[in-house]
Simulated scan of single mutants.
Amino acid sequence: MSNKRTILLFVVLAYGFAWIIWLALWLSGVGLNSPWIQLASIVAMWMPALAVFILGKITNQPSGIKSKLVVKLKSNWRFYLLAIWLPAVISFLGAGLYFLVFPSNFSLGFESIQAILQEKGVLQSPIPLSSVVLIQILASLTYAPFLNSLFALGEEIGWRGYLYPALRERFSLVQTHVLLGLIWSLWHLPINLQGYNYGLTYFAYPVLGIVAMFLFCFSVGILLSWLMEKTGSIWASALFHGAINATAGLGLLFQLPGEKMSSLLIFGPSPAGIIAVLPCLFLALLILRRERKHHEFCK
């Protein structure tokens, strides 16, 4: 089977398995706050890995994933530290940029946490809200990236472990990242159409959300591929992926709640927003430019 056909088959499988899960829950009317959605998202994150496994059985060709699951920590520890803590820097810079544009949305009263507690029937937090925020920040910088990487690994096996090198065999470095960003972002479409990441009340729904998700996946995808190539391990990209998921919501702790604020989630403060993604996009383009020159020099 040709490289083009195996790529297409992988995409169909990765989309099909995940979309069946998300669309089934959407049609059943389950809300985003339901634990079923959280469970479905965890399962869906492993569907690209399942697609790689099934693709190997169909084509009877080795995927090469096993060699990329080796952790060479001694020679690459700096990149693993970057994978753990760089996402926090990106998230805070993005949130800071968002709040510079929308300063009236920023608050140190942590009303968003109080609103969540009230929705759950808790009228007053047993500990100060500032302590709750501190615990969340510490968690996102310590154990949360490792915990989340166990879920993110399923995606990384598919997107970075298989699809990235497969696309590189056919396309240039820039074309590969654009295509991978597009494929990865549209993979999230069913759950984003339900309001995940951006809500349902933003301007030009859902087109602007599709654009925002592409910018985010394109930017983060470059960093993830760069880490995998530098370390030779999918675990580095999985750790970064887990860390970005752990830190993406930190900016929301300082966001005022309310319907008006919800319509601005398309811009931030999570790094998936159009404004908040800019620091990540800037860094990704710098790395892409450097890697492109390196590849041209090696030729």
Score class of each variant (00 low, 15 high):
P165W: 01
S131R: 13
S140C: 09
L153W: 03
A83C: 07
G154E: 04
A144P: 04
R78H: 14
F92P: 02
L108V: 11
A95G: 04
A83K: 05
A51Y: 05
I65F: 09
L93N: 06
V132M: 11
Y162C: 01
L97T: 08
S75I: 01
K72F: 00
L82P: 01
V70Y: 11
L108F: 15
I42T: 13
G109P: 00
R170H: 09
R170I: 04
S131M: 14
S75W: 00
L134Q: 09
L108Y: 11
Y80M: 09
A166T: 05
G121W: 07
A44Q: 08
V43W: 03
N76P: 00
T142A: 12
L163D: 11
L69W: 07
S125W: 10
A115D: 13
S41P: 00
I54F: 06
L123R: 11
G121F: 04
Q114Y: 00
F79Q: 13
A40I: 04
F102H: 14
M45V: 00
L147K: 06
I90P: 06
A49F: 03
L100A: 15
K120Q: 15
A49Q: 09
F106V: 02
V43H: 08
G56S: 11
S112P: 03
S75P: 02
S112G: 09
I84P: 08
T142Y: 11
K68W: 08
W85I: 08
L150A: 13
Q136N: 14
F92C: 10
I116L: 14
V132I: 14
V43D: 05
S130P: 01
A40T: 10
F151R: 14
V133E: 13
I90C: 10
T142M: 07
I127R: 07
S91A: 15
N60D: 13
S140T: 03
L167P: 07
Q136D: 12
F92W: 13
W77S: 11
S67V: 13
L117C: 06
F102E: 09
A152P: 03
I127C: 01
G64H: 04
S149K: 06
V70N: 12
F146Q: 06
V71I: 15
P128Q: 10
N60P: 00
W77A: 12
L147Q: 13
S125K: 05
I116M: 13
L100N: 10
S63E: 09
S149V: 02
L108S: 11
K66G: 00
K68P: 00
N60L: 12
T142E: 08
E156G: 04
G154S: 03
F79G: 02
E155H: 01
S125Q: 10
I113H: 08
